[in-house]
Amino acid sequence: MFNPSATACRSSRIYRWVKTLSQDARVLAPDTISASLLVRILRAAVAEGGDKRALLSAVGIDEARLRNPLSRLSAPLALRFFNVVEQHFKDPSIHLRLGEKAAMQNFSDLGFATRLEANLASVIEANVGIQILRQNIYRTTFEPTGKPPFLTWECHPDFVVPYAPMIEFSVATYARLSRQILGERPLLRALHFQHKPRFAVAKYEAAFGCAVEFSKPTTRMEIAARQLFRPSPLANPRLFDAAIQRYQQPADWMAQGRQHLAYSYFYLSTEIDKSPPTLDRMAKSFGMSERTLRRKLVEENYPFRELVDLVRQDLCKLYFMEDQRSLSEIALLLGYSELSAFTRAYKRWFGHAPSKS
């Protein structure tokens, strides 16, 4: 295990709000995985043909618990989930495929904006910077100045075997970044795993496109520098900065002692594209009564409905800056079932119809 307080973003530009959250022990209990990461894995498993209800039932996870982006699941529960997924698919290599599919899809994911960085190296660095929010069970580090540049996954020797499925999933997600950012497979110089192979080595090599070695001192991925530092066609520094600033606001609220407001903002940001937000459901995910949470939000100067409206408006600005989605898709991502309702809200926010933006 490692000490979360020792982990920090390597650049002050990369998500300063992560530091604020990581200093709050109530947010980042040690040796836990975030509900939002598990949701991404679950979504990928369903895309592979898995049964969502059966998977959650087998692990004993209440779906309502997954609605809170700051909810944490213990290491034993996370390991049980990975094992259940393997059993469900009857395939120990499933986590390599899930790592390929568990991509971030929109700004409701806390890490979606990392893909807007200048090059693949910066994207990886940003993702490593926010990894403590995703999980603090093992540690990932990135050395962009290495010759060649490399990533390592550090795990206590006693946990190398049980954590192997999680490590394999994580390695696969970083290998995916090249394809996602640059539209091509990663040019891996070498890939070493600390654990022994859990299935045919040929499957590992087919997934990663390079020779894979096992029982090494550490898990390590070496990537071609010419690929890492090539300008990214997705780079958008203006949008990246705007997305970072959006999450800095609730982090500032947290620093001011307005925790309920901050937690609610994060919750609504991740939930709003999935189902209509309700105060009752949000309160339950926090382990509170609806009446108590309503009172807390009023005390912290943002009643529930006003906060929902703020989250929608903030996300709307990002999607219009992104300029890659239709009005109908944006409306759905903001939780509007009808385009007309979104249009009315947009006029109220900005004084004109969205079609004139």
Rank of each mutant, 00 (worst) to 15 (best):
D24M: 09
V84P: 03
S11Q: 07
D51G: 06
E300G: 04
S285M: 09
V161A: 15
Q256L: 12
P76L: 07
M104N: 13
F193K: 12
L66A: 08
I272G: 06
M282E: 05
D91C: 01
V39C: 13
Q180N: 07
G60Q: 01
E213W: 10
L310G: 00
T141Y: 00
V39I: 13
Q249Y: 12
R179Q: 14
L151I: 14
V59P: 09
Q105Y: 07
P76T: 04
I137D: 00
V171C: 07
A126Q: 08
E168N: 12
L21Q: 03
D252H: 09
H195Y: 04
E86G: 06
Q227Y: 02
P217Q: 06
L120I: 02
A224C: 06
R80N: 14
Q180A: 10
S71M: 14
D314W: 08
L332I: 01
V160H: 05
L66Y: 08
I94D: 06
L188D: 03
K203C: 08
D62G: 10
P92K: 07
E299A: 15
F150W: 06
T343Q: 14
L66P: 11
R230M: 10
I124E: 05
E300V: 01
V311H: 00
M288R: 10
T140M: 13
M221C: 02
L77E: 14
S122M: 11
P237C: 01
V128Y: 00
N119H: 14
R238H: 06
